[in-house]
């Protein structure tokens, strides 16, 4: 394992190249040209199929309210009103809740994961393995199965229907990924570098902040963005722990557009576009590095 897949599978590097995203395809003289065409065609087709829902989402969001029943594929005019509705309706407030929850969980994870990841990467101590395994197990768990217990706990502390409960749960359930990926980054930075900086008179904290942390920055950013996205997308915990519409994050608020018999598609999709675009952009920045964190350890 460690010899075959390891070196390049997004094993975090302290410096220089991290991924091989731009790698050229291997020359393959054996395959006839026709196969290349088929492969390219199937890639285009699959990409189209997978991107298609987004096209539908955006086009529907831009469709005038009275045109939904029409059998045309494109709207006659672009109705931006669905998007402006978003800002004038209460949804802007829900977006604000989502932002606060995502940012809050991210900060919480950063504060908590950094010291743990750093120490477990640099030192060997009794209980280290146990700690890392417990953290790994929490990644496999999910709030959904424990929902009654979580609800009961926040009920006892009077935190139902507050953003604090959402920040805590999202932070807690994303901690494992952050600890593991940061641990991998810190381990990949030679301790000699840090020691050299220390000897050069930077002091222990200076060495940490001027050498180690900057080198681990890609890992830190990956952990942060990943947590942010996960908290942004979260649905079931927010559905359970928030009761008043103005305290709901966007994902839950959008669900209220889906009625038993009727769905307000245009406004739903305008909101969905606004809920989706930021996370896709953020994710594009970290995609390659995420794999290392999710297959925690297997790629070390």
């Amino acid at each position: 394992m460690t010899t075959t897949t390891t070196p390049t599978v997004s094993r975090p590097r302290a410096s220089g190249q991290v991924s091989r995203h731009g790698g050229r395809p291997r020359p393959n003289r054996v395959l006839p040209k026709i196969k290349t065409v088929i492969i390219a065609a199937s890639a285009y087709l699959v990409a189209f199929i997978f991107l298609f829902p987004y096209l539908v989402m955006i086009l529907t969001a831009l469709r005038p309210q009275d045109e939904l029943q029409d059998a045309t594929y494109l709207p006659s005019t672009f109705a931006w009103s669905n998007f402006t509705n978003f800002w004038t309706s209460g949804l802007a407030g829900n977006l604000w809740v989502t932002l606060q929850v995502a940012a809050g969980s991210t900060i919480l994870v950063l504060i908590v994961a950094l010291p743990a990841a750093y120490y477990t990467a640099r030192h060997n101590f009794r209980g280290r393995t146990a700690f890392l395994i417990v953290v790994l197990i929490t990644q496999m768990f999910q709030p959904t199965a424990m929902l009654v217990g979580i609800y009961r706990e926040f009920y006892q502390f009077g935190l139902i229907d507050t953003i604090w409960s959402l920040i805590l749960v999202n932070g807690g359930f994303n901690l494992a990924f952050a600890v593991w990926i940061l641990n991998a980054y810190f381990s990949s930075i030679p301790r000699e570098l840090e020691e050299a900086a220390f000897i050069d008179g930077n002091g222990r904290w200076g060495a940490l902040f001027r050498v180690t942390l900057p080198l681990a920055l890609p890992g830190v950013i990956t952990a942060l963005i990943f947590t942010f996205i996960a908290a942004w997308n979260e649905f079931v915990v927010a559905l359970t722990l928030t009761t008043s519409p103005e305290n709901q994050p966007l994902t839950v608020a959008l669900n209220s557009f889906i009625g038993q018999y009727e769905v307000d598609w245009q406004n739903l999709f305008a909101g969905s576009v606004i809920a989706t675009i930021p996370v896709i952009i953020l994710f594009a920045l970290i995609e390659r590095k995420v794999v290392g964190g999710l297959t925690a350890g297997s790629i070390k």
């Binding site: 492969i39 699959v46 997978f50 989402m57 997308n233 649905f235 999709f269 809920a275 896709i280």
Partner: peptide, 29 residues
């Protein structure tokens, strides 16, 4: 691994868009 640069980028983009999207909005589409 076998596709050219453009289809590969497009496919990566499609994958990313599906991966990052909230499952809530994906479900509604």
């Amino acid at each position: 691994t076998r596709a050219g640069r453009v289809p590969r980028l497009l496919l990566s983009l499609a994958a990313m868009a599906a991966w990052a999207a909230p499952s809530m909005t994906g479900s509604t589409v």
